[in-house]
Design a protein around this nucleic acid. Structure first.
Lengths: 89, 89
DNA sequence: TTGACAGGTAAGCGAATACTTACGCATATT
DNA sequence: AATATGCGTAAGTATTCGCTTACCTGTCAA
């Protein structure tokens, strides 16, 4: 579902058409994702268009980053260092 | 629980003491984490000491990385490139 | 203004989950 | 040998999850 919402805004019915579950079920999923801050909602007339906003995944990434000594300690530090002056402030 | 197991090996009873749930419940959690490859188990006599091994979190990180255009696209690519010749093969 | 369409919400239900207690086995202590 | 300790597992249960159907509101078209 997030994949579906990565590149495009989509209406609920549109999303539901890609899955086997009912539209209300999709609505409930969207609600959870919206509450989690992973989606934005835009109202256009009677439609609501949702889009994935991955910023919040940064929290998960940060949590994981605590344990990244294993993967590449040095690169990790470089990343942290650069990101302070990077595109995200 | 993972936080608890990050810097130190711990016995089951030790871990259980930090939570309100029963020791068997903790045991079941540890089993899941062990099966997921997130923990190592070492037997010392009748004790079993568990420790967090974050390598597997790389899978989650990779999934997140798909959406990382927001954070730092270029550094991301560098990281992927380097990790192919990095400490993890 | 009436009917069709988009979508959120409530109620209910089966399945999965997360726990509990009870128990058995291995190791340590006396 | 007898007892205590550490732990895993089995069985049972309350709770949570994920869905469905039914229904309601708000918007668009005729």
């Amino acid at each position: 579902m997030l994949d579906l919402l990565t590149d495009s805004k989509r209406s609920v019915s549109d999303i539901a058409a890609h899955f086997e579950m009912s539209r209300p079920a999709v609505s409930q999923h969207l609600r959870v994702l919206l509450d989690a801050g992973l989606l934005t909602e835009q109202r256009h007339g009677r439609e609501r268009r949702y889009q994935f906003v991955p910023e919040r995944l940064g929290l998960v990434r940060d949590w994981i980053a605590q344990y990244e000594r294993f993967w590449d300690n040095h690169l990790q530090r470089l990343q942290e260092h650069l990101s302070k002056g990077g595109p995200n402030g």
